[in-house]
Amino acid sequence: MVADVLTGTFTVKSGHAQMLKGGVIMDVVTADQARIAQEAGAVAVMALERVPADIRADGGVARMSDPSMIAEIINSVSIPVMAKCRIGHFVEAQILEAMGVDYVDESEVLTPADEQHHVWKHDFTVPFVCGCRDLGEALRRVSEGAAMIRTKGEAGTGDVVEAVRHMRAVQDAIRKLRNLPDDELVVEARDMRVSLDLLMQTREEGRLPVVNFAAGGVATPADAALMMQLGADGVFVGSGIFKSGDPVRRGHAIVQAVTHYNDPHILADVSKDLGEPMVGRSVRELSEQELLATRSV
């Protein structure tokens, strides 16, 4: 049937994430920053009112950004625009979809709206990206309809340690899975609280069923290349670019570092003279209440 046109299928949704592979997605809070990000070579931007470092500093309840601010960013660049909704806040997601946002990030960086349930993402035409700390969390999000996964890391810190921990946890679990006999897989699925089918598919393919980006604490080109060498398909940079001394240079350098993540000579070159990195906060200095990654798992 030549006339049949299908939109909003999982293939189209997860396929979009495939096209972002090997790229950098940058947090931006103004149309100017969005243009700078596009100029630096970002494959997409995340439109939000405050970068995670400011959300962290300001405290209070963090919600979906003002639609007029998101619309302004949509109109200012030709690359895809993502925006965040609170975990479980399916109405914020509906609003973002209606606005023509290209990807919704159901994000722990905002204050969760539901501590029991995530958005049922299969019902949406717009694709979703969700955070994870390990394989079980990643697959639970995929079963709810996430078309893309990212590590949670610890957003707004400039400390890459949690992103590394989460990426290694996912990769390590997949490596173990590949040698697991069927009977033990049943127990594993129960422990992970995921369906046996999805776990079998993951074992079969030897990777997550969707693209997996690194996020949460990436601040330098070396951080970005580290995440790529650990198996990330691409990188989100939140506060790391526009909270640094020279966002244009740093953004451009991180894009090149992700493309040439296996070439230390190029990495050395692009890491030169970038000015001050964002002022970081070590994750170890954070109190239990300040951790974002442990929200709604």
Partner: peptide, 8 residues
Amino acid sequence: RQVDSFEQ
């Protein structure tokens, strides 16, 4: 935009 992406 992405919501208009399709298969055919």
